[in-house]
């Protein structure tokens, strides 16, 4: 079993503090959902764990099986087993999706142990089929001219090909219609198992109809303010966030507003 542990995490962007002490522990074989209204720091948490260049960690720790993640370069974090399905993945002209994926897979392997072309193609074909992606997507330039939905599927394709220990899905559901949502969920559910842990960041409960979380956390004002089981997500869907705000005496849940 592997463990991703976030303790007292404080994060700034351009001098403004967004996260104000986040604590969260995720084990493999667990799916966690972080929910909360807009502007509460959910995506910042995802970006900070992966090492986005604009986010500065000012206090706290992130460890993966005891190893200090914050000390690692971005590529080392990936090699250690972290993956972030991004909300706004970059477009990279002139680099085909397939070439990129092969480079990524081979970067996790020793020299001389590279994946064979045949095996790679077989695996790519089968994952693309699961995600109902057109085969020609493999030869298109990475994310260039992809629709919003295509980009999301492509993120999940990478997840399935790279098989990380921990995946963070940053609003993977935004902009997806119900059919696409089902397809993406199918991909994530295929990953579920003893060697995989997942942190799903979402505004909406609807994604959680297809990927049932083991734990649900609510973020407000840059902190995790409430945690529970899947029933918490149900309650949020039915009643919204106001009851939590009342319970905790929060008037404005966004970052920068203190209770």
């Amino acid at each position: 079993m592997s463990t991703l542990e976030i303790k007292g995490l404080h994060v700034e962007i351009e001098g403004k503090e967004i996260l104000k002490g986040v604590d969260l522990t995720i084990n493999t074989n667990e799916i966690h959902a972080v929910m909360g209204p807009n502007g509460t720091g959910k995506s910042t948490l995802a970006s900070a764990i992966m090492g986005h260049p604009k986010y500065v960690v000012t206090a706290g720790t992130v460890t993966l099986d005891g190893e200090d993640v914050l000390e690692m370069e971005v590529d080392e974090r990936a090699k250690a087993g972290l993956f972030l399905a991004m909300q706004y993945p970059s477009e990279i002209s002139g680099v085909t999706n397939a070439d990129f994926l092969r480079s990524a897979i081979n970067s996790q392997r020793e020299e001389g142990e590279e994946i064979s072309l045949m095996k790679f193609i077989r695996e790519l074909d089968s994952k693309m089929e699961t995600l109902e992606m057109d085969q020609e997507m493999a030869q298109r330039y990475l994310n260039e001219g992809f629709s919003g939905g295509e980009k999301k599927r492509n993120e999940i394709l990478q997840l399935m090909m790279l098989k990380p220990k921990f995946a963070i899905l940053d609003e993977i559901d935004s902009g997806l219609d119900i059919d696409a949502l089902k397809v993406v969920s199918k991909g994530v559910n295929e990953m579920r198992g003893e060697n995989f842990g997942c942190l799903i960041i979402t505004h909406y409960q609807r994604l959680l109809n297809y990927i049932t979380p083991d734990h649900v956390h609510v973020m407000m004002q840059g902190r995790v303010v409430k945690s529970g089981g899947p029933e918490l997500a149900q309650k949020l869907e039915a009643q919204g966030y106001d009851w939590i705000k009342e319970e905790l005496g929060i008037e404005d849940e966004t970052v920068g507003q203190e209770a």
């Binding site: 590529d75 990936a78 680099v95 990524a104």
Partner: peptide, 19 residues
């Protein structure tokens, strides 16, 4: 941000720049 994206998949900085 392009570098970050490629590196977040395990690709080294040098290789990401090359791509």
């Amino acid at each position: 941000l392009q570098l970050y994206y490629l590196m977040s998949r395990g690709i080294s900085r040098v290789e990401a720049e090359r791509l």
